[in-house]
């Protein structure tokens, strides 16, 4: 989003990749169904950094980073797992000191296809020959949900700062000013730019990230905040829209709870092995082939 240097960039200008810097990049990757960082969710199992040999130092030289991660269940949606793996690779490779990131998904029913596909930079539909299509529509659907949920905190911050409901409904991207505002604050210009109100910047920035990803920042309407269907709304609808955005957040959190519990039972010591039943019948397509002989 922003091209301004972040603290992590600053720290890495000495041309050394630190585990902390890698972790900070991975922290920006979310589980798309929960809209929560994969670092916070504890999915990241291992980070290894192999420094570039001094002799190789050239324009395209850089460190190699290996990241391994695990999901709460072995049958988590392959599309979601794929998105996380791709995002993790891109996030780590965005560090200026990193030449290449290698990602490994562990303990998943499709770990091989995903690990191979992501590292070989294949499109999803090539990594999975029986996929119905790419992951882009799935990603968009989840980005929309995340946008809706994040809007709750963003509008909450603006209401807390004293904006009226009408002002919240009308605010546009160009009414926001981050650059000259104090640290951690955003200025929101209201009354046709006559007055600025300061609000907590973080929820607004988080919202902008998903507003951008879903395209509501550059459609034909100027309103920053929308209904879940991406329509602008009036001041007297703010209450209802806020109830819906609250609901979107509760849903994501509820699913997070389910994943969390499954994760615990999966890693319980006495858990029977997953589907390694002796003499397990083969899938019907293989049977068919056997029958055809």
């Amino acid at each position: 989003m922003s091209s301004e240097p972040t603290p992590a960039d600053a720290a890495s200008t000495d041309a050394v990749t630190t585990p902390g810097a890698v972790r900070e990049r991975l922290d920006r990757v979310t589980d798309p169904e929960l809209d929560t960082s994969i670092v916070e969710l504890d999915y990241v199992e291992e980070i290894e950094i192999e420094a570039a040999a001094a002799a190789d130092a050239g324009d395209d030289a850089g460190d190699e980073v290996f990241v391994a991660f695990t999901l709460p269940t072995a049958w988590c949606s392959p599309a979601f797992a794929w998105m996380m793996a791709v995002d993790a690779r891109e996030a780590v490779e965005s560090l200026p000191t990193v030449a290449r990131a290698e990602i490994e998904l562990r303990d998943h029913m499709h770990e091989r296809e995903i690990t191979r596909g992501v590292n070989e930079r294949l499109p999803f539909e090539e990594a999975f020959s029986d996929a119905d299509g790419g992951v882009e529509s799935v990603r968009l659907e989840l980005d929309r949900k995340a946008r809706t949920a994040r809007q709750h905190d963003a509008t909450g911050a603006l209401l807390d700062a004293g904006l009226t409901r009408e002002q919240v409904a009308e605010v546009s991207r160009s009414d926001l000013e981050f650059a000259d505002a104090p640290e951690g604050r955003v200025r929101v210009w209201v009354r046709d730019g006559a007055v600025a109100v300061e609000a907590d910047a973080e929820p607004v920035e988080r919202y902008l990230e998903k507003a951008d990803a879903t395209g509501v920042l550059d459609d034909e309407q100027s309103e920053l905040f929308r209904t879940p269907e991406e329509e602008p709304f009036d001041g007297d609808e703010v209450e209802l829209v806020r109830r819906r955005t609250r609901l979107a957040g509760v849903n994501m959190g509820g699913q997070g709870t389910v994943c969390d519990a499954l994760n615990e039972s999966r890693h319980a010591e006495d858990r029977p092995p997953l589907s390694t039943r002796e003499g397990a019948p083969v899938a019907p397509d293989k049977e068919d082939r056997a029958d055809a002989d």
Binding site: W75, L262, E264, A268, P272, S275, R277, P281, V282, A283
Partner: peptide, 24 residues
Amino acid sequence: SEENITHEGGEQFIQCFYDYHTGF
């Protein structure tokens, strides 16, 4: 029961149920 399962999906299904059972 194992005798009733004719497809690997049946085994996965009951094991998945069991994860939900122990998880909650």
